[in-house]
């Protein structure tokens, strides 16, 4: 039975941002909104980005978050980037040029034959939905996160476009180790 992925609510910790959006909904004068926005920006927390809704079917999100397939070459660049994808901090994989790959999590070789694109997508978006005890970070969710650092508040680890690029790349990793 398909279940509708809930639309993530604004982060609880970001009181200023949500009061700004409340003001906008209530139709308060734009100048007030601008002042609130400025206050929020000066105080630090970034504005919550809208996350795209998605539908979970079984253990997968069958449809791309963006409606279109991602770019595998861009996905590879994200996977090996230790400040964007962060993947190689925990995973190893077929990246001969990359030194210092982690071993906290399974090798990425063959991941494209172990899982479908939809299954990979849900594992990236929010692996907690499949295993609440997982250490895999939720890459496209803000739910249930505590004490998120100022620079990251309201933002998913990766954008919907980046998620799709990574899914497209991981799907190419069909050779088992």
């Amino acid at each position: 039975m398909p279940k509708r992925g809930s639309r993530p609510s604004p982060p609880k910790s970001s009181g200023r941002a949500s009061s700004a959006s409340f003001a906008r909904r209530a139709g308060v004068l734009p100048v007030v909104v601008a002042a609130l926005t400025l206050a929020a920006a000066v105080a630090g927390p970034a504005h919550a980005q809208e996350l795209r809704p998605f539908t979970i079917v079984g253990d997968a999100i069958p449809e791309p978050l963006t409606g279109i397939k991602g770019d595998a070459a861009r996905g590879r660049a994200i996977v090996v980037d230790r400040r964007k994808g962060l993947c190689l901090l925990c995973h190893s994989g077929p990246f001969p040029e990359q030194r210092f790959q982690g071993d906290l999590a399974p090798d990425l070789r063959g991941v494209g034959s172990r899982w479908s694109e939809g299954q990979l997508r849900l594992r990236l978006v929010d692996s907690r939905r499949l295993n609440p005890a997982t250490i895999m970070p939720p890459y496209y969710s803000r739910e249930g996160l505590i004490r998120v650092g100022r620079a990251w508040q309201g933002k998913p680890v990766l954008s919907a476009e980046q998620i799709e690029d990574v899914v497209a790349f991981l799907a190419t990793l069909t050779e088992a180790p």
């Binding site: 962060l86 906290l104 907690r128 250490i135 970070p137 939720p138 249930g144 996160l145 505590i146 004490r147 998120v148 650092g149 990251w152 933002k155 680890v157």
Partner: peptide, 16 residues
């Protein structure tokens, strides 16, 4: 568990 990456101290230092 804390932060955008959602790790506790124990996740790494006890479990791994």
């Amino acid at each position: 568990r804390q932060g955008q990456l959602n790790f506790s101290c124990a996740n790494c230092h006890d479990d791994h």
